[in-house]
């Protein structure tokens, strides 16, 4: 007989694959690693399904698993292989994003987000994209809430500059 938690994990996993992949991309900056991360997360989630608290947020639980795999396994392996983690200036935007042709500001935002330090980028993503409260983000990232605030402030400061001369930026984008 399967526990309810297991059923919930099995039934719900499939709904979160794209968002997990996106988080993996934010962490690793590479679509192939993001894909590996999702796969590893699915394996781990199925193994740990009995531990899932029924009624709690499955997406957050999966995110924690993915993050832990990235921090403890894949990232260190890549560094050992000398492949580095993310070359901020290398990709025009995140590899997986390709380009957002329809919205120039969106392109600029993604490009600048990619250039943020990893900790700021992840905090910004979890808070604004995935909608975690400051408190939830602090728990997920295992940092004090003040750190979440200062990371967001630093990230917003950087992003505010990208839009300080929108006309010029827009012209450059449309030509580029």
């Amino acid at each position: 007989m399967i526990e309810t938690g297991q059923l919930e994990v099995r039934a719900g996993l499939v709904d979160h694959l794209a968002r997990l992949w996106r988080y993996g991309l934010v962490l690793s900056g590479r679509r192939d690693i993001a894909e590996d991360l999702v796969q590893a997360t699915c394996v781990r989630a199925l193994e740990r399904a009995p531990q899932f608290a029924v009624g709690s947020r499955l997406d957050r639980w999966l995110f924690s698993i993915l993050r832990s795999i990235w921090l403890n396994e894949l990232r260190s392996r890549r560094i050992r292989q000398g492949e580095g983690v993310v070359e901020a200036e290398a990709a025009l935007i995140f590899e997986g994003a390709k380009e957002i042709e329809t919205n120039i500001l969106a392109r600029q935002v993604l490009r600048h987000v990619q250039m943020l330090p990893q900790a700021q980028r992840e905090t910004l993503f979890l808070t604004y994209v995935e909608g975690l409260t400051y408190r939830d983000a602090a728990v997920m990232l295992d940092v004090p809430i003040g750190t979440v605030m200062s990371r967001l402030a630093a990230a917003r400061e950087t992003l505010s500059k990208l839009n300080s001369a929108p006309e010029n930026a827009t012209t450059a984008e449309s030509e580029g």
């Binding site: 694959l17 994003a97 935002v109 993503f125």
Partner: peptide, 15 residues
């Protein structure tokens, strides 16, 4: 703005 920019990434996922 950040959320909107990232929404396009979902479409890029090899779902």
């Amino acid at each position: 703005h950040v959320k909107e920019a990232f929404s396009a990434l979902l479409a890029a996922a090899p779902e």
